[in-house]
Design a protein around this nucleic acid. Structure first.
Lengths: 339, 339
DNA sequence: TTAGTATGCTTAACCGTTTAAGCAATTTTT
DNA sequence: AAAAATTGCTTAAACGGTTAAGCATACTAA
C-alpha cells in the first residue's frame, strides 16, 4: 500500500523544482521554455514512478472539476438511463466525467441535488427539470453556471435546451389515429404543467380539432407521477369500463406500460376495440401482442446535443442561448389500427 | 454573478480567524473550545452570507471525496440502472455521491474508468467486473481501496461481493422445466467465463443430470455480448430451425429479448412448442403473449448491500472480506409450460 | 564591448479547507 | 498568593497542484 506519488515526489526524484514537472506534465514545455532533455528526463521519471496527477488538487487550483452533473427524474427509467449512457460517452471524449442524481420529479430533491453538486464544483449541469423549478434554473444561470435542460424546459427562461417538438409529434400521432378512422380518442398523461406534457396535451387537442373531432374533457385522463400504477388503473376505469373511446394516446412509455396492463386486465382488444399509440420506446412495445406504435425520440441526439451545448457554453463558445430541436418520428405498427 | 463565499469571507465578516469558523461549521465547537455566543455569531454569519463549503478543498485536505465510483457493463441496461438508482439513494443517505461509468464488458475500458476515477480520488468502488479483470481488482485491493463486486466476482480473490446463488437459481429454473415434462432443454448464454455465467451454465447442466437428461453440447448456445443481436439470431437457427428442443433457458434478460424476437419471427409457439424461462426482469416479459417465467434477483438488496459493505469497509468496520448472497426467486408464469 | 534577448530553471504565492500547536486571559486549586 | 488548569481564541502549516515573476547564464546584435 504505497503512498500516492505526487508532483513533488517526481521533482525530488530528479532534483528539480515541482514547477518544471507541472509544466512538462501539462505539455507546456514550449511556453515555459523547458529544455528538451530535461523534458525527457521528467517524462521518464514520471513514467517510472507511475505518477498520476491528483485531480482534486488540480480542481482546487483551477476552479474546475471536469465533471458534469446530470439530474433526471429517475436514472432507472430506460428513457433517462439511455440518455445517461450517451452523455457519459460524449463527456468522456472530452475528458469529462458525469455524476448523476434522480429528482423523482420533486422540486425539493432537485434543489438538494443542485446544491450538493454545486458544492462539489461540477462545471456544468444537464437537467430534465422537475415541475416548478424554474427559479432553481434561473439561479444557476444568474450564477453563470452552464446548464442545459433536456426533455422539458421553461419557455420564459433564457436557457439552452434540447428537446423534440412535442406539440407536432403529439399532433402527428393523434392525426394518425384519426386517419385510421378513430373518432373518440382519449389521452393518458401526467398531471403536470411541465412543457413537454403541456405541449403533448395541446398537440393532442389541436389534432382533434383539425380532424373535426370535438374534444371531451373526460377523454384526457391525468395521473400523478408518484402514484402512477394506482392512479392509471383507477382513472382509466371511467374511460374503459364501459369502453367509451376507440383510441388511446399515451404521453409516456411508463404511462403506456401501466395503461396497457390495465387494458389487458379488462380484456380489451387492441387495436380492434381500442387503437393505441405511445410516446417513447420500450422493449414491452415490441412484445405486446399488437406491437405498439410509438413516437420515437432520438435519445442519442438528445444526449449528444446536450453535452455539446453545455461544453460550448462552458468554453464560452456560445454567448446567446440556443435551443436544439431534435427529430421525432412516428414508428407505425399494428396497435394504431392500420399501417 | 457574485463570487462564491469562502470560509475566510465569513471569518472576515465578523473579524475572527478562519479556523474558528471551520470548527463551528464542522460541529467541533466542543473539542475546539469555541465560546457559545461566538458559535452563534458564526452560524448566523454563515447563514447570512449563505456560506457553502467548498468540498473540493475539503477533499484535498482530507484525502477523501465522499464519492463512490460505480462501474457496470452498461448504465442504459435496466438491470444496471435499477441497481444504480438504489446505490444512488443509499449513498445519498450517507452523504455520498456516485459517479458512474460503463465498461461494455471490456477490460480495457474498465481499466481506464478505474484510473480516471482513481485520479479523482473516489473513496470506494462498486464494480460489476468485466471478464479477465481480476488483476485490476487485485490492484485496487492491494492499494487498500475499498471495492465490492456485484453480479459477478472472482472466487480466488479476497474481495467483498454481492450476488445471488447463480448455480442454484439456474438449477431451479431448469428443474421447473423438467418437472413440466420438458426433455430437450437448451440454454442461451454469453460466451464468457465470468462467474455468474459459469455458474448459470453449471447449474443448468447439473439440473439436467439430476433430471436424468443427458446434456447435449449443441443445446448450449453462446453469443458474444458485443454482437448479441446478430449472433443470437444466427446461432439459435441451429436449435430452432428445425425445432430440436422443447424448452429454452435464457441466461439474461437481454438474451431473452433478443431470443424471443427470433422465436417470434420463426413462428414458434410458447409454451406449446417451446417452454421458456429467463433470468432477470423486463417489462417485455409481462407483455409477451405468454408471460415469461423468470428468475428474479432483488436489485434493491444488491444495491443496498453493496453500499453497506463498501462503506463499512471504508470506515474500517470490517476487516475480513464478506460476500453477501442475496435472494433470488423463480417467478412462475405461463411461458414455462405450466404453473 | 555592451546592451539586449533568449534560454532554462527556481521561487513563491495561491486555491479553500483542516487541525495541531501556541498564547493570553481567566478561573480553579492548593 | 502562587501554581495549575481551563477557556477562547489565533497562527501557521499542510493537502497537491498551477503559474506569474524573477534570476542567472549563454547567445545575438550593434
Amino acid at each position: 500500500m504505497e503512498k500516492k506519488v505526487s508532483l513533488k515526489d517526481v521533482a525530488k526524484h530528479i532534483g528539480v523544482s515541482a514547477a518544471l514537472v507541472s509544466y512538462v506534465m501539462n505539455g507546456k514545455e514550449k511556453e515555459a521554455r523547458v529544455g528538451l532533455d530535461m523534458a525527457k528526463k521528467i517524462k521518464a521519471a514520471a513514467a517510472e514512478l507511475n505518477y498520476q496527477p491528483n485531480l482534486i488538487a488540480k480542481s482546487l487550483k483551477m476552479g474546475t472539476t471536469r465533471t458534469i452533473g446530470l439530474i433526471v427524474a429517475d436514472i432507472s427509467n430506460p428513457f433517462f438511463s439511455s440518455i445517461a449512457r450517451i452523455v457519459e460517452d460524449e463527456a468522456k471524449k472530452q475528458g469529462y466525467v458525469v455524476i448523476f442524481g434522480s429528482s423523482d420529479e420533486n422540486a425539493e430533491k432537485q434543489s438538494d441535488l443542485i446544491d450538493v453538486f454545486s458544492t462539489r464544483l461540477v462545471d456544468a449541469f444537464i437537467i430534465a427539470p422537475a415541475a416548478n423549478t424554474a427559479p432553481q434554473i434561473q439561479n444557476l444561470i444568474s450564477r453563470a453556471v452552464p446548464v442545459v435542460l433536456i426533455d422539458r424546459f421553461f419557455s420564459w427562461l433564457n436557457v439552452d435546451c434540447v428537446h423534440i417538438d412535442n406539440y407536432n409529434a403529439s399532433g402527428k400521432a393523434v392525426e394518425r389515429l384519426i386517419r385510421n378512422g378513430r373518432k373518440k380518442i382519449g389521452m393518458l398523461a401526467y398531471d403536470t404543467a411541465q412543457s413537454h406534457m403541456e405541449e403533448r396535451k395541446l398537440g393532442y387537442k389541436a389534432a382533434l380539432k383539425e380532424g373535426n373531432i370535438r374534444f371531451k374533457k373526460e377523454w384526457l385522463v391525468e395521473a400523478s407521477y408518484q402514484h402512477i400504477n394506482e392512479e392509471v388503473t383507477e382513472k382509466l376505469q371511467h374511460l374503459l369500463n364501459p369502453l367509451t373511446i376507440d383510441a388511446l394516446f399515451f404521453a409516456t412509455n411508463s404511462l403506456a406500460v401501466a395503461g396497457l396492463k390495465a387494458i389487458n386486465k379488462m380484456g380489451i382488444k387492441v387495436p380492434e376495440q381500442l387503437a393505441v399509440i405511445s410516446f417513447d420506446e420500450s422493449d414491452a412495445f415490441d412484445f405486446f401482442y399488437s406491437p405498439v406504435t410509438y413516437v420515437s425520440q432520438s435519445l442519442t441526439d438528445i444526449g449528444k446535443e446536450a453535452v455539446k451545448l453545455v461544453l460550448n457554453r462552458l468554453n464560452n463558445k456560445i454567448k446567446k442561448n440556443s435551443s436544439v430541436i431534435v427529430e421525432a418520428k412516428l414508428v407505425v405498427r399494428e396497435s394504431c389500427g392500420s399501417r
